[in-house]
Each structure stands twice: as structure tokens, then as C-alpha cells.
Design a protein around this nucleic acid. Sequence first.
DNA 1: CGTGGGCTTGATCTCCCTCAACTAACGTGG
DNA 2: CCACGTTAGTTGAGGGAGATCAAGCCCACG
Lengths: 239, 239
Amino acid sequence: MWDTASHVMLDTAGVAPVLGVQRDVVGGSGGSWERLLQGTPLVKRRVRRKQHVIRAGQPFRGLFLVQSGVFKSALISEDGRERVTAFPMRGELLGQEALDLAVYPCHVTALDDGEVWELQPFLLRQCIPGFQERLSGMLASEIRRDWQWMLALGSLNAEQRVTSFLLDYSTRLAERGFSATQMLLCMTRADIGSFLAMQIETVVRTLHRLQDQGLIEISRSHIRIVDLPSLRAQSKTLN
Amino acid sequence: MWDTASHVMLDTAGVAPVLGVQRDVVGGSGGSWERLLQGTPLVKRRVRRKQHVIRAGQPFRGLFLVQSGVFKSALISEDGRERVTAFPMRGELLGQEALDLAVYPCHVTALDDGEVWELQPFLLRQCIPGFQERLSGMLASEIRRDWQWMLALGSLNAEQRVTSFLLDYSTRLAERGFSATQMLLCMTRADIGSFLAMQIETVVRTLHRLQDQGLIEISRSHIRIVDLPSLRAQSKTLN
DNA sequence: CGTGGGCTTGATCTCCCTCAACTAACGTGG
DNA sequence: CCACGTTAGTTGAGGGAGATCAAGCCCACG
């Protein structure tokens, strides 16, 4: 029935998305999709927690623009290794990596109840001027995001990685009108571990260590950032 | 004077690029740029080894399509950490990650004498139908490549990473008409280490171990793949 | 009420990082 | 052309962060 708001919303910002008047999220390329798509016949689709939006191997049907909810994109190799590549949120795209393919290479799952809008490049590029340009911009921004994480995972230790993840997650929620300090980690520890290239046990231990340092508070999937400045400092420390 | 061919060319395929009749490289999105750009006034630029094509922080001037040579793209964080993100070759783009930005976020250096063609999206999308679509396709393919490497770096050990790197490099050279078994590693051990998220010493030791196993032969920057099938098996072994 | 998936904690081990010293090649200026 | 400084590559020894293995816990679910 759609009521289970899994993130703590700020009173002031919480209503904005419902009215469709929220500010542009993700500075630059991510913004103003709503305005752009106005008047376009859009297929909107609601998805439930744990439901697949895209399955690897399925024929390419188009992209999906996240309207609400948090998702998980995972790449699978032939030999069965799996890796979470992203946790898309509102304003971000699902299936972008398949744009020039006949089949999707990734699984995309809802971690949350949510809504996605189907975007079909073949149709939209004709009826929306600037659509393809915006799309390219978002792809470029995804590449930068990936490279940032490659850099992080290659040069940071476990504690700094987890910290970076929490800060990134918090920031992105804040950009969308949710609280930056109170949130639900709707992904499992295994998902986080997969994304950060570390084992579940290490994720758990690291979170605990951050709690011991008084930087965060965790209870199950709920997390509160206690000392944001220190956390920021933490993630930047060179070892 | 441009003659220093740093890669071992096959006799048959070696002349093709010069005549401009080489087959499309990189299946799908990478191909047929030559045809597409035919008749377009293109700024072609020759670059020497170690020369910067793009400097991080410079204002965005457009993309570059690699026509020859091998390049190195490196992301730098505020606190000075650096990470090699790619080693682009012919048919691949430089500066794609800056498409929606005002300044380039990455350094791009020539590891080799080479040639690049300047592509200015603002101009080209008007005079070339399908330009923006092709561009999007290449960006999507870059995202997949990044995710593949994220998967590899997160789940493979040092030996498997180096093996994967060698195989990838060899394959890409072969796709461009060079030998798949005899090649010049025009990047330094440090570059490889940065790309594979491991220390120089580990790269060196791992290469040596592969040589001891009779899979490759290395002398300085020259490398020969002796046992390609075994190398392929190596990279896929689950530990 | 039981079952199982997700989570937590402890003990051990190992792969790779780190530091240090050295050699080999390069290129630059005398 | 050589001498020298500089950068790239190599090798060894040792330690530590995180992987691995094993066991138990907790809550949500049927």
C-alpha cells in the first residue's frame, strides 16, 4: 500500500516530491527531467521491495528513470562472481549501461518500494529536443562517479571506504530532501561489502568501530550520523 | 619523425590503418567513426610520447578520438591521490567524462607518439546525424568497461588481475590489427599498479611469477605472451 | 513456534603492503 | 663521448590489514 516510507524525511522537504516541485537533484546533468518530460506519454511503473526491475540477459527495452525508492545494480560475470555497481536513487538512471546493447548486462533490484519511469531513447529523442544530450551528460557523470569509486577503493582502507560510502549515501539522500543524518540502510551488509570490495565481516566490524568512536549509531538497518565533520575528516585521512 | 612504431604490427594488418580501410574496431559503438566523420572539417592533432592531451582543470574544449597511439587517463583527487582509469587506444574517446562539465577532471597523457581528432559535440551534433546517439553508445560501453574492472578488482587476486590486464591489453591490440602475443607495455609498472589497485612491487613480482610459470616472457617493456590459453584459464580461476 | 536469512563476533592465517637497498636504463649537459 | 643525475625497475625481509573459517545470535517470516 505504499506507505512504508523507509527514509526519514525532513518535515519541510518531505512533501515537495509529492507535489512535483522539488528542486533539481544532482547538480547539472541530473536535473529537470520532470520539466523535460512534461507532456510526454510516460509509462510509470511501481515496484516493490526485492522486485527486479531489470534482469541480466533480458532484451533491452529502454532505460528507467528512478522517481522514488533506492535500487541496486549488480553485474554478474560468466563464472558467477557478482558485484554491486551502484545504488541508484531518484533522478538517476537504470539500465544506462545497456544503451547500445541488445540485452541488459546487469540485474537491477528495488531495495525499497519505489517508482520508475520508462524512458525509450528511440521515441524520446524524436519528441524531446535535447533528450539525447542530457542522456549523454548523465552517462558522463556516471563514468566520473565510477572513476571516483575506483580511486577510493584503490587507495583507501576499510574504514575510509565505509566512511566514504556513508557520506555519499547521506549526501545523496540529503540532495533529495531526506535527512542527512538519519537514514535507513536498505541494502544488506553483503551489498555494501560487494560495492566496497570487502567482506561482510569487515563491513560489520568497521561499522562497529565507527560507532565505538562515536561517529555514528547503528541498530540493524537504521543508522544515525552523529559527528558528520569528524566523519568527513576520517574519510580523507591519508594513511 | 613518427616512424617509431612501438607495437609489433602484423604484416597483413599493419598497413590497413594507413590506408584508412581498417575494419571497425570495438564491436558496436566504437566502429565506423571514419565513415561518419567523412567530409567533416576535423582538427587532427599529433602528439608525442609523454605529452599531455588534456590536463585536469583545463576548460572543456571537446572530446578527442584516438586515431593512433596509446594513452593514459588519470583521475586526481583533491588530496593528491592519483589513479589511472584507462589506457585508451584507437577508436576510443579522450575526455568523455567531461562531456557535461566546464573543466576536465582528468589528465590524459600520450604513452606513445600518436594522433587524435578533435570532436566538438556542439558542432558535430548539428552536422552529423546520429552523432549524439553514437556518443551515448560509447559512453555506455565505457560504463560497462568500468564495471567489469570494478568486478575484477574486487574479486580477483594480484595474479589474476595482472593476467586480466595483459589479456585485455592483448585483445585490444589484436582488435586493432597488432599482434596479440608480441607487444610493448608502453605504460610503466606504476601505471599498471595504479590501474589494477596494487603496488609496483606486487606488479613486478607477479609478472615474474607468470614468467616463471612459462606463460609470458618479459624484458623491460617488451612482453610476449607464450601460453595464451593457460593465461586465459589463469584469469578465470576462482580461489 | 520453528526456520532461515541476515548479522555479529572470535580466532587464525595469508596475501599483499611497506620499507629499504640496489641495479639498470635513460637523457642531459659538459 | 662520457659523467652524472634521475627515473624505472627489481629483489628481499617483515609486518599488518583484512580474508577466511567457524560458531552463534536475532529477528522476520511462514
